[in-house]
């Protein structure tokens, strides 16, 4: 089992200009901004499952990212 981050599209506030998870993800090109859906998307193949994005998202009270097992 391997833990990766998953963005809940309905809670994500990237359309308002939030880039917290994108900024603080330690992996490059892993959390990207989807210009069509206006949400953050996770590239699961390069996610190492460190949960930093969950921490920053919850600290801003968005609760839009959760960890999922693959």
């Amino acid at each position: 089992m391997y833990a990766v981050a998953e963005v809940l599209d309905e809670s994500c506030v990237a359309h308002k200009g939030c880039r917290l998870c994108i900024m603080y993800c330690p992996e490059a090109n892993t959390i990207m901004f989807d210009p069509e859906k206006k949400v953050a998307v996770v590239n699961e193949y390069s996610c190492k499952g460190c949960e930093l994005c969950v921490v920053v998202c919850n600290a801003a009270k968005h609760q839009a990212i959760k960890m999922a097992s693959r």
Partner: peptide
């Protein structure tokens, strides 16, 4: 630009959550 364009760093071998990679 981060998040909307390709970064100049690719997948690396640092630990998960390493602040150095941020």
């Amino acid at each position: 630009d981060v998040g909307s364009s390709k970064e100049l760093i690719e997948e690396h071998s640092l630990c998960a959550g390493c602040p150095e990679s941020i």
